[in-house]
């Protein structure tokens, strides 16, 4: 194991790792809004809207993220959509994770006992206020854990934007393997960085989860 080499290439990889974090964070952020919108649309009273939302979720979850990425990046111009690689990565990531997240949110909300909804409504709370004060606080824990799992998948998926030439961690790793002919060293360091990112995400998720479920220890 050539440690000198590893020290040499480390800064390059760290820089690229930040790009990974950047792309993933943005995709997660926007994905959350897309997911929330989908959750609302999915329960709309207007049937075509409901159907469209479900169809969207079904298609996005039923096809590979990689193909979606290529479709939007290379196929986009044909429908007037010209995105630069980084933005494309964020947008496709957001729309992709948004579909999964909407199911996670829905699942968490449905996991709350229906009696809670009944008690709240019988007091006179409306749909939105019931959601706000009673349902969401109880669904939060499960939601946070589920979204955490998706966030980790998002980080790993971000490696695919290397194919459309975004200089993130995997792109840099591949480049360095090619230029240094030392795959083991490059892989070890890159793998390490992914692991650090992922464990950081898990740590944040755990922290948020504990905060959201504080009432269970009281």
């Amino acid at each position: 194991m050539d440690f000198n080499l590893m020290i040499e290439i480390a800064p390059l990889l760290v820089q690229a790792a930040w790009v990974t974090v950047d792309i993933s964070a943005r995709a997660l952020f926007f994905g959350f809004f897309i997911a929330s919108a989908l959750v609302v649309l999915r329960t709309s009273r207007i049937r075509p809207v409901r159907w469209l939302a479900r169809a969207y979720i079904s298609v996005v979850r039923g096809t590979p993220y990689f193909v979606q990425l290529l479709l939007i990046f290379y196929g986009g111009p044909a429908i007037g959509l010209r995105l630069d690689p980084f933005t494309c990565g964020v947008v496709v990531g957001a729309f992709n994770i948004g579909a999964y997240m909407s199911e996670a949110i829905r699942g968490a909300i449905e996991s709350v006992d229906s009696g809670q909804n009944e008690a709240s409504r019988s007091l006179g709370f409306g749909r939105l206020t019931t959601l706000q004060y009673i349902i969401l606080p109880q669904a939060a824990g499960l939601m946070i854990r589920s979204v955490g799992v998706l966030a980790i998948i998002l980080v790993k998926n971000s490696s695919l934007v290397s194919i459309i030439s975004v200089v993130e961690l995997t792109y840099q790793a591949q480049r360095l393997i090619g230029s240094t002919y030392k795959p083991l060293e490059v892989f070890t360091l890159s793998a390490l960085m992914y692991i650090v990112i992922i464990y950081a995400v898990m740590g944040i998720v755990e922290f948020l989860y504990r905060r959201a479920t504080r009432y269970t220890f009281l």
Binding site: A119, R121, S122, G124, F125, Q138
Partner: peptide, 22 residues
């Protein structure tokens, strides 16, 4: 319905207290 329900009180077989509140 929300307005009308505020004038009625219901007590359930399984209590349905809000667990996240004191």
């Amino acid at each position: 319905i929300n307005h009308i329900r505020q004038n009625m009180g219901m007590v359930f077989q399984h209590f349905n207290l809000f667990p996240h509140l004191s």
